[in-house]
Amino acid sequence: MSQVEIKSREEIALMREAGRIVCEILDELEKAVAPGVTTWELDALSEKLIYQKGAKPAFKGYHGFPACLCASINHEVLHGIPSKRRKLQEGDLMKLDFGVVYRGFFGDSARTVPVGKVTPEAQALVNATREALNKGIQAMVVGNRIGDIGHAVQSYVEARGYSVVRDFTGHGIGRHLHEKPEVPNYGQPGSGMKLRPGMVLAVEPMVNQGTSDVMVLDDDWTAITVDNKLSAHFEHTVLITEGGPEILTRRGSG
């Protein structure tokens, strides 16, 4: 895509529906996360629910990705491929990254779910990453810039001793899963593209306990932390409005 799309009222209405479906399915997936459950079972549940709700998978077949759900565990940052061999264990951090297409428009969201009882350190990472997303969203006001979003995320994360992943970013979203602009989780205040009403952005902090460096495994998808320390990931699809940011992938959006 060569330029940033400003969504019309009709397009925004469809993106609200896409976001609602994403949220409802993620809610069901989160309930299903438990020790002994395989990531393949979570993916199968997501696919069943997608079609029940009249949508289509956003990820399956995207550049060859083989599943509806990106399922990443512990030191896996994102793009984990579901497998019948991967059973969740007590204390894991399960990252559910998920999207749908509804009547030609995409919704995209992610959340990190503790499996059973996790360590205080793991829970602190989850809490910090979730709040970093909130900080980024709070910066998504008309007149601010892309750099303000990244700075809000980065400054919150690094003040707590964590690092933000730089190799993967948030993105515009609409008729395509990934549109312009890129939305890094780091940046300088007042830098980058100005935020305008009608822009829809997927903002997604990926936060590591240790170094920000990641590597992609031989499956060409799964990204892991190079030091094997834990990573957490949260994401929302957000509409820029004159009245402030509207989260499209949250219950009761608006």
Rank of each mutant, 00 (worst) to 15 (best):
V37T: 14
W40C: 07
C23D: 14
L29H: 01
V33P: 06
D27G: 03
G54Y: 14
E41M: 06
C70F: 08
A34C: 13
L14I: 00
N74E: 04
I12S: 14
H63C: 08
G61H: 12
C70E: 14
G54I: 04
G61L: 11
R9K: 15
L42V: 00
A18C: 03
T39I: 06
S46C: 10
E10M: 05
P66E: 03
L14K: 03
A18K: 05
E24R: 05
E41Q: 07
M15Y: 12
I12T: 09
G36V: 12
K60P: 09
A44K: 10
M15C: 14
S46L: 01
D43G: 09
D43Y: 04
E10N: 11
I12H: 05
A18I: 01
C70I: 08
E17R: 09
K56Q: 00
L45I: 08
S72N: 11
S72W: 15
E24I: 01
L45S: 04
E11I: 00
A67F: 01
P57T: 07
A34F: 13
E11F: 00
S72F: 11
L42K: 04
C70R: 08
I6E: 02
Q52V: 07
A44P: 02
E11A: 02
G61D: 07
A34G: 10
K53Q: 10
V37C: 11
A71D: 15
G36T: 14
E11Q: 00
P57R: 06
I50W: 00
A67K: 15
P66A: 01
S72I: 11
L14F: 06
I73A: 05
M15K: 08
L45K: 07
C70A: 15
S72A: 15
A67T: 07
A32K: 15
M15N: 12
I6N: 01
E24S: 07
E17Q: 11
R9L: 14
P35Q: 13
S72Y: 13
G19E: 13
C23E: 15
A44H: 13
T38S: 14
L26R: 08
M15P: 10
V22H: 03
E28Y: 06
G54K: 09
E28L: 05
E30S: 15
I12D: 09
S8M: 13
E47M: 01
A44W: 10
G61V: 08
G54M: 07
H63S: 05
K60D: 06
P66Q: 01
T38W: 04
A34D: 13
A55K: 07
K60T: 02
K7M: 14
L45Q: 07
I21C: 05
F59M: 07
F65D: 11
I25A: 09
L42M: 06
R20Y: 02
T38G: 08
A18P: 08
I6K: 04
Y62C: 04
Y62W: 11
P66D: 10
